[in-house]
């Protein structure tokens, strides 16, 4: 058994003149849940289609479960299950028929688990697919994927049509899959979902991975937010190295600090007589905003960085 389920190195993909992937790197260790983050149009689905051997990379190397996804597509696909971001089904098949069919095309599915998933996702399998809403079509693909015994689950924005209750069911199901030793690639732009589920995260922008590692690694590289109530004059922190965005309001102070300078900042702070202190690690949202902040700023029409 390989220890990396997915290994993408320097992959380029062009559609005509448009470059969808630009020397993309992506590694997913076996048995982990890997988050794949990026806004719409950043190349997430293109990467997944390359991984599934549906389109061919123009340059670079791709290994999936130890094989070449383009050449060995059929044998590799017996070992994986895929949920597309926008599920379209056969209008005249019922949900239950589509689930069984997909299971059979993959080489089998566990009927007991299918039954369990249908009730947890509250999906009526006797309805024709044309009558399903987007969320219900997504449930069909999710049940088919989760009821299979695939080693690798490739999920492309799987919760975009689900309500919060169903999102919670989905979260449980992914955690159970990991507990069974499955590998999961979860593409998403919902940060809280990735934060809850993923061991590692890759952030992609314009077809290029701009950040990747464990959540802890990523946080280490960055800033935390500190909020404190002090007796002394907090302006003493002004100009300290690594302190950003200092706001003083009476005896309350809030600032962001680079994790490498946290120690020095706290020493200064304790010298001022701390009465209360809250320090938050950066949320994934903040990490994300740092990479996309300039786009956001441009949208908001102000020049300042968002983080």
């Amino acid at each position: 058994m390989t220890t990396t389920a997915i290994e993408v190195r320097g992959v380029d993909k062009y559609f005509g003149r448009f470059q969808a992937l630009d020397k993309l790197d992506l590694t997913v260790p076996t048995g982990q849940v890997a988050g794949f983050l990026g806004p719409n149009g950043s190349g997430k689905s293109t990467t997944i289609r390359v991984l599934l051997g549906l389109i061919r990379a123009d340059a670079g190397s791709v290994r999936l479960l130890g094989g070449d996804p383009w050449k060995d597509a059929v044998t590799l696909h017996r070992r994986l299950a895929y949920v597309p971001g926008d599920v379209t089904l056969w209008p005249n098949l019922t949900g239950g028929q589509a689930i069984d069919l997909l299971g059979r095309l993959r080489g089998g599915l566990d009927p007991a688990r299918k039954k369990d998933l249908l009730s947890r996702f509250e999906l009526d399998p006797t309805k024709k697919a044309r009558t399903y809403s987007k969320g219900n079509r997504q449930k069909v693909a999710l049940v088919a994927a989760l009821a299979s015994d695939a080693e690798l689950l490739v999920l492309d924005e799987p919760t975009s049509g689900l309500d919060p209750l169903m999102e919670a069911v989905f979260t449980e199901c992914v955690l159970e899959a990991r507990a069974r030793g499955r590998t999961v690639l979860l593409s998403s732009h919902i940060l809280s979902e990735v934060e809850k589920l993923c061991d590692t995260v890759t952030i992609i922008r314009k077809g290029r991975a701009v950040e990747s590692g464990t959540l802890a690694d990523l946080r280490h590289l960055t800033r935390s937010t500190v909020r404190a109530t002090v007796s002394g004059d907090a302006r003493a922190l002004e100009g300290s190295e690594g302190v950003h965005n200092l706001r003083v309001d009476g005896d309350t102070v809030a600032f962001d600090v680079d994790d490498t300078h946290m120690d020095a900042a706290l020493r200064t702070l304790t010298g001022l007589g701390v009465r209360s202190l809250v320090s938050n690690p950066p949320s994934l949202e903040e990490l994300f905003m740092r990479h996309y902040g300039d786009e956001l700023a441009a949208l908001n029409g102000n020049g300042g960085a968002a983080a």
């Binding site: 289609r49 599934l52 549906l54 597509a73 059929v74 044998t75 696909h77 017996r78 994986l80 299950a81 895929y82 597309p84 926008d86 599920v87 379209t88 089904l89 056969w90 997909l102 095309l105 993959r106 080489g107 693909a141 490739v154």
Partner: peptide, 12 residues
């Protein structure tokens, strides 16, 4: 997109 779903299974 239905072909994508079908071809993501073990179908050449």
């Amino acid at each position: 997109g239905r072909a994508e779903l079908t071809l993501s299974a073990a179908v050449g």
